[in-house]
Write a protein that binds this DNA or RNA. Structure first.
Length: 267
DNA sequence: AGCCAGGAGATTT
DNA sequence: AAATCTCATGGC
């Protein structure tokens, strides 16, 4: 990502396309298709644009969020610092789940390096102008691996078990984004996710917010959120869950966005 | 050097 | 049910 431009390898219907998105005049996004794997039909092109709209949450009307946030002591500064920021999603369910499990209880830098090794060890890349672009490993591929295979990249046994279990559930068709989308009730989807081994309240809400796109999803016990609140309010300790509940009482329906904006705060 | 990290499950009280 | 222990590597 070079400030106002990003290149991403997008997979749709097992077709890989290298897409470049850039900002034009602060107001428009220009989408260009790179490499040889350009979309051939109008339908394919429109599907890619739809994917990008979902990924960057472009169709969300943030008016009421900003109206609320400008009055909120915790949010008013961050919404001024990052105007227009949208909740960047992780459209692929397996990727969202893996990313969440990888990030459980380890520092972010280690999580990033683990994810990088995970992707580079278990998936292919394409090269464009001397740079490699990676797709995320598929659950079919992971379902055939073992804890020992994952130990090579310093994944702990527990994380490996969780990810392999999830890969198996998805391979068997027991778990899919489509199935979760059919359940309309937020609490019901959350319960369904938490029933899976390795997925607790934090992971479930992380996925609800970044993949299933529920703006009311709220990973309340998130350490990054706690530290951001601590920093914003100049506290000498991390806030308790009760304090966070109280501070977030005005966020109703926008908890995911509030969390995402606070994640941008570096402390 | 020691604490803790964008937690979850198992065990104990 | 609620508190406590275990996993376990690496960053600071």
């Amino acid at each position: 990502m070079i400030d106002d431009q990003i290149i991403k390898l997008i997979e749709l219907e097992s077709l890989f396309t290298l897409v470049q998105i850039s900002v034009l005049k602060d107001d428009y996004l220009v989408v260009e298709f790179l490499s040889d794997s350009r979309p051939k039909t109008r339908v394919e092109k429109e599907a890619l644009v739809a994917y990008i709209c979902e990924w960057l949450d472009l169709n969300r009307d943030l008016t009421s969020f900003y109206k609320m946030a400008r009055q909120d002591p915790l949010l008013k500064e961050v919404v001024e610092r990052f105007p227009g920021l949208r909740l960047v999603g992780v459209p692929d369910l397996f990727e969202a789940l893996c990313w969440a499990v990888l990030g459980q209880q380890i520092n972010l830098n280690f999580a990033y390096s683990l994810k990088r090794k995970f992707v580079e060890s278990f998936e292919e890349s394409i090269t464009y102008k001397g740079r490699k672009y990676w797709a995320f490993p598929s659950y079919e591929k992971l379902a055939n691996l073992s804890v020992e295979d994952l130990a090579v990249i310093k994944m702990t046994g527990r994380k490996s078990e969780y990810i392999l279990g999830i890969a198996k559930l998805m391979s068997e068709g027991e778990l899919s984004k489509e199935k979760l989308q059919q359940i309309k009730d937020f609490n019901h989807v959350e319960k369904e996710l938490i029933s899976i081994r390795g997925i607790g309240p934090w992971t479930a809400n992380y996925v609800l917010m970044r993949c299933l796109r529920y703006p009311e999803a709220f990973p309340i016990a998130d350490v990054g959120l706690m530290n951001a609140i601590k920093y914003q309010l100049r506290m000498d300790r991390k806030p308790s869950s009760e304090e966070i509940l109280k501070l977030s009482s005005g966020w109703t329906g926008w908890e995911a966005y509030a969390t995402f904006y606070l994640w941008r705060v570096r402390y």
